[in-house]
Design a protein around this nucleic acid. Structure first.
Length: 205
DNA sequence: AACACGATGGACT
DNA sequence: GTCCATCGTGTTA
């Protein structure tokens, strides 16, 4: 099914558009397959929540590179957070993968996640990377090369979408703190803190 | 060279 | 709800 891999061009758009279309898509790594249920868009320019707001640094370099690549960084000294780079080269934008639903490789996911079971296996950006076996060494890796970290077009329709403010960005401007750039699949149980989200029809801008 | 802090998660009251 | 582990990164000096 290598032909269902999303091509680089899929990511070559505004991060918010890509974020909407990533809901329902599949992340595959080895024998583990996850369906994306919750994401956050970090746009460019003028997004004060974005890691690229202060310009290029060694850490955020992948975000400034071509779209369709991973940007993985260490958060709070212990959690690897997975992003997909969007827009075009020279623009620092990305989509954070916040939660997924396991589709395949559940035993391996459980082994990697220790005592956690049920939705706690893959709800939360740090949990997703742990379940996938992805860490910061994947930062800069392409998402469309078969055999590596792959992202595939999803098979199931997403249905209604929920949107709300992004999490953990108190340092951003009031406007950006409120912006509904956190998106989730309404019907999925694999979404944390659903109460902070509202149903949306089309695409917010 | 020193320092403050974070796009979190797990344990606990 | 509260507490806090843990360390790379970016900033300041």
């Amino acid at each position: 099914m290598a032909d269902s891999i999303l091509p680089l061009s899929f990511y070559a758009r505004d991060a918010l558009e890509v974020a909407y279309d990533l809901l329902g898509a599949e992340i595959r790594h080895g024998e583990v397959r996850l369906r994306i249920t919750e994401v956050e868009a970090y746009r460019f320019p003028d997004d004060t929540a974005n890691h690229c707001r202060m310009g290029r640094t060694p850490r955020n370099a992948p975000m400034w590179g071509p779209p369709g690549h991973a940007y993985v960084y260490l958060c709070y000294g212990m959690h690897s957070l997975l992003n997909f780079v969007t827009n075009t080269e020279g623009e620092g934008a990305a989509v954070l993968i916040r939660a997924c639903e396991p589709l395949e490789g559940l035993e391996l996911v459980q082994a990697r996640r220790g005592k956690a079971r049920g939705v706690a296996l893959t709800t939360g950006p740090g949990r997703v990377t742990k379940a996938l076996g992805v860490d910061t060494t994947f930062s800069g890796a392409p998402l469309y090369v078969p055999g590596g970290l792959e992202v595939h077009r999803g098979r199931t329709p997403v249905g209604a979408v929920l949107a709300g403010p992004r999490i953990g960005i108190d340092y951003a401007s009031p406007r950006d703190r409120k912006a509904p750039y956190r998106l989730a699949v309404a019907e999925s149980a694999y979404v944390l803190k659903k109460t902070a989200l509202k149903r949306v029809r089309g695409r917010a801008s």
